[in-house]
Simulated assay, not measured.
Amino acid sequence: MGTSSGRRADARDRDGEGRARNARPRDGLGRPLPYGSEGVERQPEGVVRGPEETVTEAQELLDAGRPFHAHEVFEDAWKSGPQEERALWRALAQLAVGLTHAARGNVTGGPRLLRRGAAGVEEWASDRGPQRPYGMDLAGLAGWARELADDVERGGTAVDARERGPRLRI
């Protein structure tokens, strides 16, 4: 069976090692576009970065209104970082994907993920006392996330990811 792009409906995109990878272009919020469309450059997956580099790269993506891509940077840190920091990076990834959903107009899932991420960064910080890992303001991020979640629910519409993105460091 064919599709308008000439691809078989059951064909799967594969990477160089044969693993399934969706090669469809994506927009700045990570939404798939039709094959052949002009999309934004995707974040490479599985990149091992140091924590400082992770925070810097994620902030640049958030500043550019690309929280989906920032989520992927945090996800790499979550999967490759030291065990004792995985909960932190997972919570930061949840904040970024929560912003992604809020920017896409998902007024249920966006706030839910923002609050889950806020709870995660607070829980991680509470286990270690007051500190700012890699210069990040975890209490400020949790407050930002809850405020945005409330605003999205009240407003019932998508937010501008660039305007409403967080500052990871003070």
Rank of each mutant, 00 (worst) to 15 (best):
G50S: 06
D15N: 05
Q59A: 07
F68C: 06
S37F: 09
D63W: 05
F68S: 11
L29D: 08
R42S: 06
A9T: 09
P51M: 07
R21C: 12
A23Q: 10
A9G: 07
R19Y: 02
E38L: 15
F68T: 05
D15Q: 02
S37W: 09
R8W: 14
E45V: 12
T54W: 04
M1H: 10
R26V: 15
P25M: 08
M1Q: 11
V55C: 07
S4M: 10
L29I: 12
L33A: 13
H71G: 04
E17W: 13
P32E: 13
Y35I: 10
V47W: 00
G28T: 14
A11Y: 05
A58P: 00
V48T: 15
P67M: 08
M1Y: 09
E53T: 06
G39H: 04
E75V: 00
R24L: 15
G50L: 03
R31S: 12
L33E: 11
A64V: 03
A70G: 07
Q59D: 11
N22S: 12
G28F: 14
L62D: 01
T54E: 06
A58D: 00
V73P: 07
S5W: 08
E60L: 12
D13G: 15
M1K: 07
R49A: 03
E53R: 02
D10S: 14
E53D: 11
V47C: 00
G16P: 03
L62R: 09
A64I: 03
V73D: 04
Q43L: 14
R8N: 12
V73W: 00
G28R: 15
L61E: 08
D27K: 10
R24F: 07
Q59C: 09
A64Y: 03
A11Q: 14
E17L: 14
E57M: 07
A9F: 11
P25K: 11
T3Q: 05
G46D: 02
G2M: 07
D76K: 09
T54Q: 05
P44M: 03
E53H: 02
G18A: 03
E53A: 13
R14P: 00
V40C: 01
Y35G: 13
A23E: 01
E45I: 11
E52H: 02
S4D: 12
A70S: 11
Y35M: 13
P25L: 06
P44C: 04
S37H: 11
T54V: 11
T3H: 01
E17M: 13
P34I: 08
E72K: 02
L61P: 06
T3C: 03
R49Q: 05
V73Q: 04
G2I: 04
D76S: 04
R42G: 06
